[in-house]
Amino acid sequence: MQQTEQAKKQYQKMVERASPGSRTFANSLKAFVVGGLICDVGQLIRNLLLKGGVSEDHTAIYTAVILVFLGVLLTGLGVYDKIGKFAGAGSVVPITGFANSVAAPAIEYKKEGYVLGVGAKMFLVAGPVIVYGTLAATVVGLIYYLVK
């Protein structure tokens, strides 16, 4: 009896030790598939635009704009949230996740008004991304200017 208790405890310990890893693995697999698929949607848009004779530079912009549109639309419809629950980082890391980070608070904080609700909260996550992206780009630009 005591032995089985002990075995149970040991087993539980083993499970505890193993599960964070396997959870990370399962989450990573889901993130991989969904994130990869979103990139393939981007690749499809890109290929179609290039085939349609759009220049390389414009294609990059159009692709970003279309993906942002899709991310916002799916957020509004409540679909992106579901994708996010399943895919974790797979929905956060692509640019559609950036779009989601703008659209979700915009909709959520609508009740606080259009200025301090929608207008301000839109940049809850996007703000820091833009701030530190801009700072990093400024550093890169300055170094490039000096060493070029």
Binding site: T24, S28, A31, V34, G36, A89, G90, V92, V93
Partner: peptide
């Protein structure tokens, strides 16, 4: 693209 999301997922988890 998938691998970048995996890196993000590992960082989150």
């Amino acid at each position: 693209g998938g691998l970048m999301c995996v890196v993000g997922q590992i960082l989150i988890d």
